[in-house]
Computed example of a mutant assay.
Amino acid sequence: MRRATVRTEHERPQLIAAALRPDNTDEMQSEVEGDTVVTHIERETTGGLQSTVDDYVVNVDVADRVVQHAYRHNKSKP
């Protein structure tokens, strides 16, 4: 079994974790620790682990951008 842990810091980690949850597979577990989303990933092969981590990192980036954009947009409303 191959394993990786990805830690990413965010201003609103609960929102990021919630946005990522639908894309998580059975081999992934995420939790929030302070301002950090911690995700543990297990896969049978190194290639599978690499693919899953790559996909996850892209999803984190998109989720973070969407949350930041939404927050800025809602903050500017009267």
Rank of each mutant, 00 (worst) to 15 (best):
I16H: 07
E33A: 11
L15D: 00
Q14W: 08
I16G: 08
E33M: 11
R65G: 12
L49S: 01
D35S: 03
E27P: 00
Y71H: 01
R12W: 05
D26Q: 04
Y71W: 01
D35H: 00
R7F: 02
E9L: 08
H40C: 04
Q68I: 12
V67Q: 15
H69A: 06
D26G: 05
A18P: 00
G34P: 14
Y71F: 04
R43W: 01
H69N: 06
T36E: 09
R72D: 15
T5K: 07
T39A: 05
T8L: 13
A4Y: 06
D35F: 00
L49T: 01
S51M: 00
A70M: 08
T39E: 03
L20I: 09
N24I: 13
E31V: 12
E44F: 01
Q68C: 06
V6C: 03
P78G: 15
Y56I: 15
H10T: 01
R7W: 05
D23G: 10
D55K: 10
D64L: 12
Q29H: 10
V53Y: 02
L20T: 04
Q29S: 06
D61C: 09
T45F: 00
D26N: 04
E11D: 14
E9M: 07
D54V: 00
M1S: 11
A17S: 13
E44N: 04
V6G: 07
K75I: 11
H40Y: 07
E9K: 09
N74V: 07
R2C: 11
L15M: 06
P22T: 02
T46V: 12
L15G: 07
E31Y: 08
I16F: 04
P13E: 03
R21I: 11
S76H: 13
L49H: 05
D23P: 08
R12V: 03
V32S: 05
M28R: 06
E33S: 15
Q68P: 12
H40W: 00
D64C: 03
T36M: 03
R21H: 14
Q50V: 05
